[in-house]
């Protein structure tokens, strides 16, 4: 007759004995091994912004809003353009009036509550435009913090939002260092740029890339070494925004300046 103590001991040994070979199955799963070597995807969408070429026309913002059904009058956008004006005394003025949906039509800097700031031409050291969009990070903090998993990263690197699952807590919005997210005014769920996923997966370019008359925006596939965008990223000196957060952003910039936020 086995007593209780013996039974417990034997049960533990048996459980251990069963668990060990089972864990080996996990360890030597060829699929996961293959995935660890190479993530098994032939695509990793990336974006290249050439700030030298941007003139601040705002066509990209307009195209994005219409393609992705974000109402034109909404004071938020999946993509926007920032203007940087650096004066000779070292002061930096930044603005993005109405996300630049109408382009930069005035030389005055929009200081929002403080009105428009007139900076004289002779005081300006340099000025440039920087288009912004979601960085489709490799380690997206928005995905990490979503309490219900409504936002997720696809195998080809794009971060998407499930509008039917998002509860609208705003934790992802708070956790994005780039200010890429907002609440959709119609659907009332988190919203952001998704590289026009519905287009790029069908072989098209994103709406903003198509709309840019100067070729300042380009989309590419990092896994394809013959892709012209990949070539630029491999061979040229490119920068990314806010690297210090560790999100590993995948929107690359040519001509970044230290003033860019």
């Amino acid at each position: 007759m086995i007593n209780r103590r013996e039974f417990c001991k034997k049960a533990m040994v048996m459980a251990g004995g069963i668990a060990l070979p089972l864990s080996a199955f996990q360890l030597f799963d060829p699929k996961s091994l293959h995935a660890e070597k190479n993530d098994g995807n032939s695509t990793r969408w990336i974006f290249l912004v050439d700030t030298h070429k941007c003139v601040g026309c705002g066509f990209c913002v307009k195209a994005c809003k219409s393609e992705n059904e974000v109402p034109f009058e909404t004071n938020a956008s999946r993509t926007w353009v920032e203007r940087y004006v650096v004066t000779l005394d070292g002061h930096t003025y930044i603005d993005s009036p109405k996300e630049a949906r109408n382009g930069f039509t005035s030389t005055k800097i929009d200081q929002q509550h403080h009105g428009l700031k007139d900076v004289k031409n002779e005081d300006i050291a340099k000025g440039f435009f920087v288009p912004k969009l979601c960085n489709q990070c490799d380690k997206p903090s928005c995905v990490q913090v979503c309490p219900v998993g409504a936002t997720f990263r696809t195998n080809d690197g794009v971060v998407l939002i499930d509008r039917k699952w998002c509860i609208g807590c705003g934790y992802c919005v708070q956790n994005c260092p780039y200010g890429a997210r907002f609440f959709h005014p119609v659907h009332h769920v988190a919203e952001k740029c998704n590289f026009c996923y519905h287009r790029i997966t069908k072989g098209l370019k994103t709406a903003c890339v198509d709309a840019c008359p100067f070729g300042a925006r380009k989309i590419g596939n990092l896994k394809d070494l013959s892709d012209p965008v990949t070539k630029v990223i491999m061979n040229d000196r490119v920068g990314v925004l806010k690297e210090e957060y560790g999100n590993k952003p995948q929107v690359f910039y040519l001509g970044l300046s230290k003033e860019v936020r």
């Binding site: 938020a76 993005s96 200081q111 929002q112 200010g179 997210r181």
Partner: peptide, 18 residues
């Protein structure tokens, strides 16, 4: 209106979605 817009006043430069 975007969520939050009604009670937010912005000064100087903020990202448009903030």
């Amino acid at each position: 209106m975007v969520h939050g817009e009604v009670w937010t006043i912005k000064e100087f430069f903020t990202y448009p979605n903030e």
